[in-house]
């Protein structure tokens, strides 16, 4: 949508830049720009510098393909972490979700997305080959496939599982379950059926 001429050129330019971001439409972009115009200069500078720092200083770790300032990343170079386990996730942000649990002390591998041929994303577009090579070289005892329980996450896990199985280590998948604090009688039939399949001995 073209920005009306009546607006000063730098304002129009910034609205245009914001509108390119995901989930931000022209209206929201304009609101953000007018908000920034009313803030002190140092705040705007801090924002601009933070954006540039992300581009200049953050790279992909060449081992796990997570985001890092130095290579290998903190998680890959931390000797206290268990190198015999690799948790495979779709995106770097999934690592932060798992780390917040404090329940996992192994290493990670970021695929960079999920397989979806209808969207033009095949294994070659992801870091699948890199995972197989890494597993071949490091010979970990267990690979945990932690992709989302949706159609693309399932297909990606099945595919990666097929490639890894011949290498001989344990390949596991996150269990499906009921939300903690939820009621069994309020869970949908599919979730409940999956939770039953994944039941454990007490």
């Amino acid at each position: 949508m073209p920005v009306p001429r009546a607006i000063a050129e730098p304002v129009a330019a910034l609205i245009n830049e914001f509108s390119k971001l995901p989930t931000i439409g022209p209206k929201t972009a304009a609101r953000l720009v007018f908000y920034l115009l009313n803030r002190p200069r140092h705040e705007a500078q801090a924002l601009a510098e933070a954006i540039l720092a992300v581009k200049d200083k953050v790279h992909l770790c060449t081992t796990c393909y997570s985001l890092t300032e130095h290579d290998p990343c903190d998680l890959c170079s931390d000797e206290r972490r268990d190198a015999s386990m690799i948790c495979v996730v779709a995106e770097a942000k999934d690592i932060y979700a798992i780390e917040r649990t404090g329940a996992y002390k192994g290493r990670y591998h970021v695929l960079g997305g999920l397989i979806s041929p209808m969207d033009g994303i095949g294994p070659a577009q992801l870091r699948v080959k890199e995972l197989v090579e890494r597993v071949g070289a490091d010979a970990p005892a267990e690979i945990i496939l932690a992709t989302n329980p949706n159609a693309e996450g399932e297909a990606t896990a099945l595919y990666v599982g097929r490639l890894l199985q011949p290498l001989g280590m344990a390949v596991t998948r996150l269990a499906y379950g009921l939300p903690i604090g939820g009621d069994i009688d309020y869970a949908d039939e599919v979730t409940l059926a999956r939770a039953l399949e994944g039941r454990r001995v007490l």
Binding site: I115, P117, G120, G122, P123, A151, E154, A155, L158, Y159, R162, L163
Partner: peptide, 15 residues
């Protein structure tokens, strides 16, 4: 698309 990844095709066929 003629992507001849047999393994991936079998994943979808399994589902």
């Amino acid at each position: 698309s003629e992507t001849a990844d047999r393994e991936l095709l079998e994943v979808y066929e399994q589902t």
